[in-house]
Design a protein around this nucleic acid. Structure first.
Lengths: 225, 225
DNA sequence: GTCTATAAACGGATAGAC
DNA sequence: GTCTATCCGTTTATAGAC
């Protein structure tokens, strides 16, 4: 599985190329030949190692998301142990949720990129490679964080807490996918654009403030535009 | 262009089918034959009416997003006229931004669905059919709202304002795309799931609170998970 | 495990009859 | 404007040599 040589073996090179190309173009728009071409291996190796194009996609996610059963809640466990029954502060919880639950485990495939578009893409692109085999650990982790958030913010209903976590996932996925349809980062030559830590630094006060806000559901909302 | 008959003409049926299938499967994963099959018309009609698959995609967005040059900022104009030089309250501005700038104009193509996954998909899917021909009016509208937000929230830098608008777009796109990888809406049988107005009602306090929050960029943020 | 060659189906686009 | 038949490149996947 591991070689002491200079070049990774064919299987790894295929995974690397597939990860990058699926990320850039999406699943359907990426052909097996593009992948093998980029990896410098014959086409047949994809089917030999992964069975099919979809099998390759699944292998890419499996590798990117980390080992199965890997505890994605261990950090939360630690926080709760330290708190000793007390509620954990919101900002700490938000940090933990962003860095631990939503963040990917595997680091820098290409060149120091810690954050992955891959997971962002997984949240949106339909078809094989997304919901179908998305690990259950993520949903379990989400539920653990839901409980923690509800302890910290007892003034919110469960629905409100879940909705707000849902919104957070949306923001993070959008940023992770690196999408910018409005061309905001171009138009305003935005600082921190593309820098995960910078983005998260901008994100945190926004999210924390949003999360602690009173629910306040108002009946009629939108004027006709 | 319009018939008094029962069935819409071929061109319209193609647009309807394409809108639905592009929305469900994405652009690359949807073939022209799938579309013409669903529409009950021969394949050749796509090229006759729209020139190419991409031309069809553009026509779909053109129809969904409303007429070109349609003023997407007219409501903001009205608000600013009423304010008479004064800053517009944040919640009003947020409402206007959500309902007017980001919302789609065309209603219920399929069956009473006002909100569109289509635009949500446009925000994420790579390749043709997304950023390439996304109308400039959207970006213009964003800039108008940026100016309004900066007047209302002078304690924020331009970067912070733009970032927060960016986050909002991310949330809305996620909700619009209807994606829910964590299966939150299933798991918790979430109230308001799928109901645009309900979602927006949940969204508003979250966004308003996040937007007015002090920037507070902190140097070191995330503990190792 | 790696490669060449090929199979079998599907992709978008078009020519030309009606 | 609508339809049939077809072209031609590309797709995934496989068979079989090395």
């Amino acid at each position: 599985m591991a070689r002491s040589d200079s070049l990774p073996d064919a299987k790894t090179r295929i995974l690397d190329a597939a990860e990058r190309l699926f990320m850039e173009n999406g699943y359907a728009a990426t052909s097996v030949r593009m992948i093998t071409g980029a990896a410098g291996v014959p086409v047949a190796l994809v089917n030999y190692h992964f069975g099919s194009k979809q099998g390759l996609m699944e292998a890419v996610y499996e590798r990117a998301l980390g080992a199965r059963g890997g505890s994605r809640v261990s950090y939360l466990d630690k926080l709760e142990a330290e708190a000793g029954g007390q509620a954990i502060p919101v900002d700490v919880l938000v940090d933990a949720f962003l860095s631990s639950a939503l963040r990917l485990t595997r680091k820098d495939t290409i060149s120091g990129e810690v954050f992955k578009q891959l997971i962002g893409r997984a949240f949106y692109e339909p078809g094989p490679g997304t919901e179908a085999f998305f690990p259950i650990e993520y949903r379990e982790a989400v539920d653990r964080y839901r409980q923690a958030f509800m302890r910290t913010l007892p003034h919110l209903s469960q629905d409100d807490v879940v909705w707000r976590m849902y919104f957070i996932v949306g923001i993070v996925a959008y940023a992770m996918a690196g999408k910018d349809v409005m061309r905001m980062t171009e138009t305003y030559s935005l600082a921190d654009a593309g820098r995960p830590d910078g983005i998260l630094a901008r994100l945190r006060p926004f999210i924390v403030a949003g999360f602690v806000a009173p629910a306040g559901v108002m009946p009629t909302l939108f004027a006709s535009a």
